[in-house]
Amino acid sequence: MSKKHKNSRSETTPTDDLEKSQNSTSGTNSIRNLGATLTPHKYTATYVRAGTLGKTKNALLVMLRDEQDHLLCDHIWVKYCNAFKRMNAGDLMSFTATPYRYIKGYSGDNHAMSDFSVDVSLTDFRQVRVVGHNPVVEQKVNDLKQKFDEEKARQ
């Protein structure tokens, strides 16, 4: 990481910000401190699976940590990119990504502004590398797939 990026960080630590967001009035991680600035940062996370929401393909990552190994969030859905094609459930990955803010919430009629919140996700994945493997995550994904297949067969 360049000096420019290190010097642009805020006074609070990612852990402080995670605790603040967990203790917020909504009770959800409404804002994750994925970087004090919206510039690329280095992260590690465990790949779980791909999924779709409408026409958008996404990837589920768990235990997202910054380069100082602070836990930023327990899970995050990000837009699927070519880097995830070679990932298997349980792969611990290291990467550089750019945080971005977006409005989260239901956008249908008759909903108050309280139904919306600002959240942060990651985009522009670069230097994606597999640096380890978590067999527990892999086993849980396989168990869920098997359970889903069994339920589907019963119908």
Results as ranks from 00 to 15, higher is better:
residue 12 T to S: 09
residue 33 N to Q: 08
residue 120 V to P: 01
residue 68 Q to W: 00
residue 75 H to F: 13
residue 90 G to M: 09
residue 40 P to F: 02
residue 89 A to E: 06
residue 58 N to I: 11
residue 89 A to W: 06
residue 124 D to Q: 09
residue 60 L to E: 11
residue 114 S to T: 15
residue 90 G to R: 02
residue 67 E to L: 01
residue 91 D to A: 05
residue 99 P to N: 02
residue 12 T to V: 05
residue 86 R to H: 12
residue 140 K to S: 02
residue 96 T to Q: 14
residue 40 P to Q: 04
residue 31 I to N: 01
residue 68 Q to S: 11
residue 83 A to Q: 14
residue 2 S to Y: 00
residue 68 Q to D: 14
residue 51 G to M: 12
residue 91 D to G: 01
residue 131 V to H: 10
residue 41 H to L: 04
residue 24 S to E: 02
residue 102 Y to V: 06
residue 63 M to D: 15
residue 30 S to E: 13
residue 153 A to R: 15
residue 66 D to Q: 04
residue 112 A to W: 03
residue 15 T to M: 02
residue 4 K to A: 13
residue 48 V to L: 02
residue 34 L to D: 05
residue 128 V to W: 04
residue 91 D to L: 01
residue 53 L to S: 14
residue 69 D to R: 15
residue 89 A to C: 06
residue 137 V to N: 06
residue 118 V to Q: 12
residue 154 R to D: 06
residue 56 T to Q: 13
residue 147 K to D: 13
residue 58 N to S: 05
residue 152 K to Y: 13
residue 111 H to W: 05
residue 40 P to T: 04
residue 97 A to G: 03
residue 31 I to T: 13
residue 15 T to W: 07
residue 54 G to L: 00
residue 75 H to D: 14
residue 114 S to C: 08
residue 63 M to H: 04
residue 60 L to K: 10
residue 26 S to P: 01
residue 29 N to K: 11
residue 119 D to N: 15
residue 72 L to Y: 01
residue 26 S to A: 06
residue 147 K to F: 10
residue 143 D to T: 11
residue 118 V to G: 00
residue 114 S to N: 09
residue 114 S to H: 09
residue 57 K to I: 00
residue 91 D to W: 04
residue 26 S to L: 14
residue 117 S to G: 12
residue 140 K to Y: 09
residue 77 W to N: 13
residue 43 Y to L: 07
residue 130 V to S: 08
residue 42 K to R: 15
residue 97 A to H: 00
residue 127 Q to F: 10
residue 140 K to V: 11
residue 124 D to Y: 01
residue 79 K to I: 04
residue 73 C to N: 15
residue 55 K to D: 05
residue 89 A to P: 06
residue 57 K to N: 03
residue 27 G to D: 04
residue 86 R to S: 15
residue 153 A to M: 10
residue 40 P to G: 03
residue 110 N to V: 00
residue 112 A to I: 03
residue 82 N to C: 00
residue 150 E to G: 02
residue 31 I to H: 02
residue 43 Y to W: 11
residue 83 A to G: 10
residue 96 T to C: 11
residue 139 Q to G: 07
residue 52 T to M: 10
residue 124 D to C: 07
residue 92 L to E: 15
residue 63 M to T: 10
residue 137 V to F: 10
residue 154 R to E: 14
residue 68 Q to A: 12
residue 71 L to I: 08
residue 51 G to Q: 09
residue 135 P to N: 05
residue 72 L to G: 03
residue 47 Y to G: 09
